[in-house]
């Protein structure tokens, strides 16, 4: 079987800080799931992060520097091309989705966004 893959294209860009943090908090069979949920937050759509161990049908897997991020098919359409980062500050330690090309507006704290409705 021949499988085509690209090293230059990824659905998400993952920063080194983010990859390091995921590796630190996930056990061997675990991964971080990113989910977009509607009707919440100042922008109307909110990013959610979970640690899980079970894959579902139609999940997209993004691997970077040994860290594994899983996104479902509905959510990937809303975050494709974004950068996933981890910020460690005195006030908070938090995973964030930045520079989302699908977002029309992002709320001040960065946890929610308003998509470009077509």
């Amino acid at each position: 079987m021949i499988r085509l893959f690209s090293r230059s294209f990824s659905y998400l860009n993952v920063t080194s800080q983010c990859a390091a943090r995921i590796k630190k908090i996930c056990k061997a069979n675990e991964f971080m799931r990113i989910l977009v949920d509607g009707g919440e937050g100042c922008g109307g759509f909110v990013y959610k992060f979970n640690i899980e161990s079970e894959m579902k049908d139609n999940d997209y897997v993004i691997e970077s520097e040994g860290a594994k991020i899983v996104v479902d098919q509905d959510s990937i359409a809303l975050i494709k091309g974004s950068t996933v980062d981890f910020t460690d500050e005195m006030i908070k330690k938090v995973f964030t989705v930045k520079e989302n090309p699908q977002a029309d507006m992002t709320c001040g704290c960065g946890s929610s966004f308003s998509p470009k409705f077509k």
Binding site: V36, D37, G38, G39, G44, F45, D74, F117
Partner: peptide, 15 residues
């Protein structure tokens, strides 16, 4: 009415 219902349906993602 139709604007509001479209607005609600747009945001009713996973609900």
């Amino acid at each position: 009415s139709s604007i509001l219902m479209a607005y609600i349906k747009q945001h009713a993602f996973r609900k």
